[in-house]
Simulated scan of single mutants.
Amino acid sequence: MTLKNFSFVGIFALSITLVGCGGTEDEPLTVPDVFGLPGDEARDLIEAAGLEPSLEAAESSVWQPSNWEVESTDPEAGIEVEEEDEVIVNLIRPVADEDADASAQEAEEEADLQSAEDAEQEAAEETERAEAEAEEARQSREQAEQAEAAEEQEREDRVPEQQESDGGDLGERVTEAALRGFNVDSFTGLLSQDGYDLSLPPYYAISDIETMSDSTVRVHVQEAMFDEEREQMGRWFFNMTCREVPELDTVVVNDVSGQDSNHSAQEFMRMPGCD
């Protein structure tokens, strides 16, 4: 054998030896140790090892693996497996997350409780406002009723004691007071009274003094009258009756034309002692 042939045989034998050491056979794979790692990191390591990770959790679905951590794997870490074998990764929520969830739940419950208390307080305040408004309305009604009663009592108190004792109505009392003022028994007696000025309103033609209300009378005159005569007659009635019939407030003069003219006590200057 020559040196050249020997070199070729040696190279061939070395090649057989290298192939027999494992260059053609797959080395066994093992499950990596991912205990305690976040779910997404564990998944990446298992995929890098040539295996198929399956993330699972007992209590709920895993939506964000980064929020979970590895509790165990099946098969366990270090177990030899075939390439692309499935590795079940059991995940749990970290204690800190559970505490955060509990805190969030507690905060939500407290917020709901506070909202309920606020609503209850608002309802109580609204009820209190409604009751206060009702009480105010009741007091206003009572005050109005009291004012009306006081006004009615005041009107009754304005009736003089003479009217209560005599029992006559306003027209009768005005008639009596006017006749006493003229010092006659009837208005027709004024025609024969010495010194009576016929240029004055026709008092002698008064036929009746009618009660219209507790403060108003109508004087019926059986002659036609001018406006000045109507006004003068109204003034004289107030002046002659003011002491005996102080509640007289309005005199309505009515002549044969049927026309009424109203005269108020506030329109005239009263005689001394009538204010």
Rank of each mutant, 00 (worst) to 15 (best):
S261K: 06
A150Y: 06
V217C: 03
E71C: 02
E71S: 13
W68N: 01
T241S: 08
A178C: 11
E69L: 07
R158N: 13
Q232R: 12
V62Q: 03
T30F: 07
P201C: 05
D85A: 13
E267A: 12
A111T: 10
E145A: 14
S72H: 09
V252G: 04
Q139V: 15
V221C: 04
C21G: 08
F237E: 01
Q232Y: 07
S7Q: 09
D227Y: 08
A123M: 06
A144F: 06
Y203F: 15
E154H: 13
E125C: 02
D227F: 13
A137G: 02
G78M: 10
G78P: 03
D260L: 07
R155G: 05
V89H: 01
S66L: 12
E136T: 11
Q143C: 00
A102R: 12
R129H: 12
S192Y: 12
A48I: 05
D44F: 01
E228A: 14
Q153K: 14
N254D: 10
L198Q: 09
V62L: 06
E120M: 10
L3P: 04
S115C: 04
L45S: 07
L170W: 02
E76Y: 04
L200F: 09
L3Q: 11
G50E: 07
S115Y: 08
Y203G: 09
M269Q: 15
E109Y: 07
A124S: 10
E120P: 01
Q222S: 14
D112E: 14
G10C: 15
D85P: 00
D208S: 14
L3K: 08
E172I: 07
D227R: 09
N67Q: 15
T188A: 15
Y204A: 15
V31T: 05
E106A: 15
Y204V: 05
M240G: 00
A132W: 06
S215Q: 11
W68L: 02
M225F: 04
H220M: 11
E125M: 12
L55G: 04
A149G: 01
D169Q: 09
Q259S: 13
A100P: 00
A116C: 06
D275Y: 10
A107D: 11
S199W: 05
Y204M: 10
V184T: 04
Y203D: 07
A13I: 14
P246G: 08
E25T: 14
P160D: 14
G171D: 05
D169K: 09
L51K: 03
E41F: 07
A104P: 00
S261G: 07
P38W: 03
M271P: 01
A178V: 10
S257T: 15
P75V: 04
E27C: 01
E52I: 08
G167A: 10
E84V: 05
P32G: 07
E125S: 14
L18V: 13
Q259G: 10
L14F: 15
A107Q: 13
A13D: 02
A132T: 10
A177E: 05
S15V: 13
T30I: 08
Q143G: 01
T73H: 02
S165Q: 15
E131M: 08
V217Y: 01
P32V: 09
R218C: 03
L200Y: 09
G78W: 05
M225H: 04
Y203T: 08
N239L: 02
V251Y: 00
A49F: 04
R43C: 10
P202M: 05
A96M: 02
G234L: 01
V252I: 15
L248V: 01
F226W: 12
D97H: 08
F12K: 04
A137S: 07
